[in-house]
Design a protein around this nucleic acid. Sequence first.
DNA 1: AATTAACCGAGACGGTACGTCCTGTCTTGTA
DNA 2: TACAAGACAGGACGTACCGTCTCGGTTAATT
Lengths: 194, 194, 194, 194
Amino acid sequence: MSPDPARRSERSRQAILTATRELLFEVGYPKLTIEAIAARAGVGKQTIYRWWPSKGAVMFDSLLPAPAGAPELALPDTGDVEADLKTVLRAIAEEFETPYLDQMTRALATEVHNDPTLGEEMVKRLLMPHLEATKERLRSAQAAGQLAAGLDLQAAVEMLFAPLFYRWMLRIGPLTPEYADTVATMAVAAMRPH
Amino acid sequence: MSPDPARRSERSRQAILTATRELLFEVGYPKLTIEAIAARAGVGKQTIYRWWPSKGAVMFDSLLPAPAGAPELALPDTGDVEADLKTVLRAIAEEFETPYLDQMTRALATEVHNDPTLGEEMVKRLLMPHLEATKERLRSAQAAGQLAAGLDLQAAVEMLFAPLFYRWMLRIGPLTPEYADTVATMAVAAMRPH
Amino acid sequence: MSPDPARRSERSRQAILTATRELLFEVGYPKLTIEAIAARAGVGKQTIYRWWPSKGAVMFDSLLPAPAGAPELALPDTGDVEADLKTVLRAIAEEFETPYLDQMTRALATEVHNDPTLGEEMVKRLLMPHLEATKERLRSAQAAGQLAAGLDLQAAVEMLFAPLFYRWMLRIGPLTPEYADTVATMAVAAMRPH
Amino acid sequence: MSPDPARRSERSRQAILTATRELLFEVGYPKLTIEAIAARAGVGKQTIYRWWPSKGAVMFDSLLPAPAGAPELALPDTGDVEADLKTVLRAIAEEFETPYLDQMTRALATEVHNDPTLGEEMVKRLLMPHLEATKERLRSAQAAGQLAAGLDLQAAVEMLFAPLFYRWMLRIGPLTPEYADTVATMAVAAMRPH
DNA sequence: AATTAACCGAGACGGTACGTCCTGTCTTGTA
DNA sequence: TACAAGACAGGACGTACCGTCTCGGTTAATT
């Protein structure tokens, strides 16, 4: 019934993912079509439909690191939480400002809205590692007494990342390093003891 | 060249917007088609293409209050900022949890990604009034000495709304009243003097 | 109910007929549209619909002489019927070979197929005068004893014109002067006494 | 680039031709639409556009015998040319008077005007066989000394068929058996020796 | 080594929607 | 009230993709 992954052509798989990435960049997600991917990849359409359930799924696989390949992220730990978080937030802000990454991330986000399954997938593969790594750094700061003991860590990391995401998605304003610093400063203020 | 707005049929305009709203709810944004809108509204397709540049623009007009009609919002002011903000955030959380509003807001968000023009429009029509009203309340609290004098008000309001939006969009967790309270508490902590 | 011809704008009428003729030549009958005629003539579409029942009718009026204006045709009469008919048939053959007239006549013919009313109109306005004039010449030849007395004149004139029309319409072969002569010779042979 | 005829669906081809024939009869050629054909045939529009260049071409294939299938026609040969030709012309006159055939032939003729390619096709497939068969009969009569030896056979056959076609197309008069006889008699008179 | 069963490239198929064009009617403002 | 202008409901156009379906032609792995 369902196809045999053992006989899958790695060659075709790579060609499809590469073609998808190229086309995503060239024409954007809304104008991305299965036919174009197949043509560019030199592949039959059926080969795409055989292995992926939707256009969004192909795009996800083409942009996201393989589930297994998710590296163990770790934040810098200089002993100064606020400084370390600033470093991280500045890096994220810079990424969002990169046109290529901006475009790709918006493509992902578009699909996340309309397909909860893919949303879950993305959160798991892409977001959770970052959130968990950040939580780990906050725990270390807690242990050092820099942050409140009873802190809701989940809410705390969301408070760190959410403002950048919010600005980026709604294009409310530019994601400058200064803004990243402001967010870090305010968030840390909210987490301090007392 | 471009059509004369003075001769526009108000009857057709309303029929189109109503049909769009109904279909959005019934089939969802990705399956919304111009043909279906025209058919439901009893309108020629050309009449839609004449007045709107894209499917997204029709949807926007059907969901968003008219620019002129944007009401002057004002937040409650009991004297206790934190309590007032909790009230507001709880209300927003509740809205996002309503299936109908959830669906509509996702439709808007999808389009915002792919059309900066519409994004700007939405921010201006829908978001800014809320942000401005909230800023006003924060100013009043500053005057009362409850918040730091040098506070970056724009960053502050974003820190209030962003976490709810973040959770909602990425479906990271439920938007409970408790979560709304947590966000408000933390954000206010970040804004306090010292 | 129906419009008052007394108030009809002669200016518009002429502009419409001229525009129609120009467009017929430029784009051909199948691509001729009422909108284009109106635009070219600087006229409202309604003005066309008010005075003509169909696209074909406009074309007819634009190409055919006014009913009243049908000139009294008369064939040459040198005393030699065959020679006179050759003169006439050669002239007709030449007309059909003129690209402009070829195109216009085909436009008329197309419409004649699909609208018997227009067909009748065309026959009456364009064809009958020629047929009658030719009949008249044949009668004169009969009187001179050159043609059979009991000749079916209607059948005879049709036998003269039909072959040219046939070749032209079906593009079976070129309408050369030689062919015109052959037709005249054979037809006259068929009409001679005995 | 162009489609592979080997993979063409015979099922669809037949369905399209049948649907076209039915619709031609039901609504007439000017109101025949590709959409209606596709719908009636249970076929995608693209399948029609893939294999035929125009609406006229579909109609032609639906009405005309396949090129290969053109039967070898032969006229009766009783030894009396005039009688044999009367038989043939009466048959043709009768065909043109049949409402169904009249309608179909007019549809063909309409398209012939506007597309020389189709005209050629029709002449080759439909007309030439008849003309050639008739020429053959005339040759046999020539051999028997009934017709002039130096006769221009092409002009002769055209003189036989053209008058019927002329009357039919321009609706000048009814195609009665008597008229068929008159045409045959006159034409034969034109072909006789001397 | 021959067989066989799957994946593969290719692309025809029945469909749906697109965005454009035109039809014939209706409405508005001008002369 | 005829007119120029053009918005309107409707509907066909020809195109682009969708997702499914054959069709040979390679590959494997099994006989």
